[in-house]
Design a protein around this nucleic acid. Structure first.
Length: 417
RNA sequence: GGAGGGAUGCCCGAGUGGCUAAAGGGGGCGGGCUGUAAACCCGCUGGCUCACGCCUACGUAGGUUCGAAUCCUACUCCCUCCA
């Protein structure tokens, strides 16, 4: 059985969230005896987070569910500097306006995974620009700079990799870890936060924060990281035909989000069920018994649960229903992307490649033509034989729509208006 | 500040006057096999027309030439070494 005493550490270890921890036994004791405040920092480089950030988000959710307090730290200040971890090259710096607008859009996501409020275990959101932009250079160097050894900083992976590859690491980026470490100290002082979590690539940054807090304020602090997630065939998580798997519905529809999870590789299903759903371990071990084509049932469950969490139960049901109708019954689902087309255009007839473009399935006429030549274009599930085949009102089904497909998985509807 | 080296399509990376819309790989898309999986095999992978053809593209701006990604000039950015 599990040797840990606290619900939090038990869950984290049992479900596969743990990669490294600075002192897991001591943290276990802390979590057993009272409320632990923990934070994870999030970047504001894009207007939405994608699946790659889901693991840290789930971590905060587990934390809250096991009776502790999650802190979402928005990197309003650190995004201005740019984290060199895992980056081959310096990243484009964003101005304050872009960062703030990204932050606004990211905020929505968290409200679906965490409960915010003023209670003892309610989540809070804090922006590190609140203190980072106020820093006085000389004062900061004197008070905190003395606690960092450059020798040591050079030994961290994020720095070492750049140096080994002889790629520039600007002094600005070199300071990122100091600022992140300072975040921890500041949060510890402001909110009594004792734990920083993050992806395994953040280990170096996290350890720095833990040490700084110990050194400056002689306070105990912990760090904990989640494993780097790849699919069992080794690919990074979060890419599909349509691009990144965003968590905001306006950047990726709940239907596509559902599809992303539905298409999980066999070998990943159980692992993902543990990491990305609220299902109990008992329920998951039932699903684990499925084999062969039955695994698809587990995938549907995974897709449903994941979508429900990110987009709500209605969206999850809608996506599941649409997928069922589309793939299993050969009918049309309501959640398929649909595009209006003037009825008059149909009356005079439009060419097949043009229709595919209008339906958003192809980005250029050439691409549509190639698709058709390759045999991947369909009108109402019938393969399009020629690029110049025309589509007319006679292709409308009784509901007044035409179903277009690119390959077997991507579908869209054209609606005559 | 001085001396060299570099900048190629989504990414990596060949190409040093015409045969280059640009090798090769990755990624992506489609087809086949399947279970809306993986692995594997095949095809496609700048735009417009798709039959020829036209346009855009090899850091930016000019120039030489019948013809340039390839030669020349200036500029921008990057790297290495020296001070």
């Amino acid at each position: 059985m599990n040797k840990y005493k606290s619900d939090f550490i038990k869950t984290v270890t049992e479900r596969g969230y743990l990669h490294q921890c600075t002192d897991i036994d001591a943290l276990d004791d802390r979590a057993k005896s009272g409320i632990v405040s923990a934070y994870i920092g999030f970047d504001c480089t894009a207007p939405s987070l994608h699946v790659g950030s889901l693991l840290p988000i789930m971590m905060l959710r587990i934390l809250q569910q096991s009776g502790h307090k999650p802190i979402v730290l928005m990197g309003g200040g650190t995004t201005m500097v740019g984290d060199p971890s895992g980056k081959d090259e310096s990243r484009q710096l964003l101005d304050e306006k872009a960062i703030n607008s990204n932050m606004e859009s990211i905020k929505e996501i968290f409200s679906r995974f965490l409960k915010f409020g003023d209670g003892p275990t309610d989540a809070v959101m804090i922006n590190n620009a609140d203190w980072l932009t106020e820093l006085n250079y000389i004062e900061f160097l004197r008070d905190y700079g003395k606690h960092f050894s450059v020798n040591r900083m050079l030994s961290f992976d994020s720095v070492k990799l750049r140096l080994e590859r002889e790629q520039t690491l600007s002094f600005l980026e070199f300071n990122y870890m100091i600022l992140q470490a300072y975040d921890f100290l500041e949060l510890n002082r402001r909110t009594n936060c004792v734990l920083q979590m993050g992806g395994s690539d953040q280990w170096g940054n996290i350890v720095n924060g833990v040490e700084l807090t110990r050194r400056v304020d002689a306070k105990e602090a912990f760090g904990l990281t989640t494993p780097l997630l790849t699919t069992s065939s080794g690919a990074k998580m979060g890419k599909t035909a349509a691009g990144a798997v965003w968590l905001n519905a306006d950047m990726l529809s709940p239907y596509d989000y559902w599809q992303y999870w539905r298409n999980t590789e066999d070998g990943d299903v159980v692992r993902f069920l543990k990491l990305f759903t609220d299902l109990s371990l008992e329920e998951i071990s039932e699903l684990e018994k499925l084999s062969g084509a039955e695994i698809n049932e587990a995938k549907k469950k995974l897709a449903f649960e994941a979508t429900r969490m990110a987009h709500g139960i209605d969206a999850a049901n809608g996506a599941a229903e649409t997928a069922k109708q589309t793939f299993e019954e050969g009918k049309l689902g309501d959640d398929l992307p649909s595009f209006d087309i003037p009825r008059s255009d149909l009356e005079s007839g439009i060419q097949a490649f043009d229709a595919l473009c209008r339906a958003g399935l192809c980005s250029s006429n050439g691409e549509a033509r190639r698709l058709i030549k390759g045999g991947g274009g369909r009108v109402n599930d019938k393969q399009i034989k020629s690029e110049t085949e025309t589509i007319t009102v006679s292709d409308l089904n009784p509901d007044g729509v035409i179903k277009l497909s690119s390959g077997k998985k991507r579908h869209a509807l054209l609606r005559a208006v």
